[in-house]
């Protein structure tokens, strides 16, 4: 029976056994599902198993055990059908160095069996979308790093496949290129593509992803939408404080709260604290009564704080 999920991973394990070295247990039995049309984030520190998961789902490497299904096709037993359903932007750069931008896109279209007229239409679209039109006759080897990365993403979006994997697609991009790429990801998802992305930029995951999974040492340590993930961490709040004057006593008081982050100047301070909301209100009350507080704003912790907290706890209590 075909799964209704775009991606289904069940007890996936992967063991690498390099010659002459100890085995590496890259994945230790992870399971998750991705709904069709969702933007799904796979987060984790370096070496967590994110890229291994992507490699298994894109049929680059077989799993040691478990099941990985993409668009209803088993990655191990139906690799060709699986590959027909997906496009991928790999973590490393990947382009035809000695072909032009247009040559890269045309070759890619041929490999994905896109008819010529349709390919030309889509190529024009992605050239515009990724700001590559003026560089269409430039050889890939002569492009800047950011342009090359954009070309890679443009190829994946050219394919029109139902599932797209982006393995750190915005790494190395400047803010403008990054924004272009993120907009393109949103647009592609709005057309119905399921997008799985890995990223180290947690603000990007926070901005884009419908659901997230946090992986560490081959295990899933958190799964859910953004709010569910944030609730898993110890509550944390960021206070933006404005004073008439930040006195040494005020500084001492704030530092004594053991903040996660703290920065200040003569009249302002930003501080992130892991406290309950009542405790936060108490601290603000104290600042207002005794420390010349003029204005304050309170924000819940961002994903990065939760991420670091979860990983720290994982180190203390490993799965």
């Amino acid at each position: 029976m075909k799964s209704h999920y775009a991606i289904e991973v069940v007890n996936l394990t992967k063991m690498y056994t390099p010659r002459g070295k100890p085995s590496v247990h890259a994945l230790k039995g992870i399971s998750f599902t991705v709904e069709p049309g969702a933007i799904f984030g796979l987060l984790g520190p370096n070496g967590a198993g994110k890229s291994t998961t992507i490699k298994i789902l894109t049929t680059l490497t077989p799993p040691t055990s478990g099941r990985a299904v993409v668009n209803g096709f088993d990655c191990l037993h139906q690799p060709l059908e699986t590959r027909r359903s997906l496009a991928v932007v790999l973590q490393q750069n990947a382009f035809e160095l000695y072909l032009t931008v247009l040559g890269n896109l045309r070759t890619y279209a041929r490999f994905h069996h896109i008819p010529r007229k349709e390919a030309d239409r889509r190529i024009t679209e992605v050239l515009d979308q990724f700001g590559l039109y003026d560089e269409r006759y430039t050889h890939a080897i002569d492009l800047s790093g950011g342009m090359r990365r954009r070309l890679q993403v443009a190829k994946a979006f050219l394919s029109g496949k139902p599932v797209i994997f982006l393995d750190e697609a915005t790494t190395g991009l400047d803010p403008i290129n990054r924004r272009t790429t993120l907009s393109a990801i949103r647009e592609q998802a709005s057309k119905g593509s399921t997008i799985v992305l890995t990223t180290h930029l947690l603000d990007e995951a926070e901005d884009l992803c419908d659901r997230l999974v946090i992986v560490d040492h081959g295990n899933i340590i958190a799964e859910g939408d953004l709010h569910e993930i944030k609730r898993l961490g110890v509550p944390a709040y960021t206070l933006n404080l404005i004073f008439r004057n930040v006195s040494p006593q005020t500084l001492q008081f704030l530092k004594a709260q053991n903040p996660l982050h703290f920065k200040h100047n003569d009249t302002a301070a930003d501080i992130t604290l892991q406290r309950s909301h009542q405790q936060i209100l108490d601290i603000i009350g104290e600042l207002d009564r005794h420390h010349d507080l003029v204005h304050f704003e309170v924000h819940t912790a961002d994903l990065e704080d939760v991420f670091i907290d979860l990983l720290s706890r994982q180190k203390e209590e490993p799965v």
Partner: peptide, 16 residues
């Protein structure tokens, strides 16, 4: 060279 610049691994994800 294809392996070195990564395109070889991308080829392995193509529908062939």
């Amino acid at each position: 060279m294809d392996r070195d610049n990564g395109i070889f691994y991308e080829h392995l994800t193509y529908p062939m």
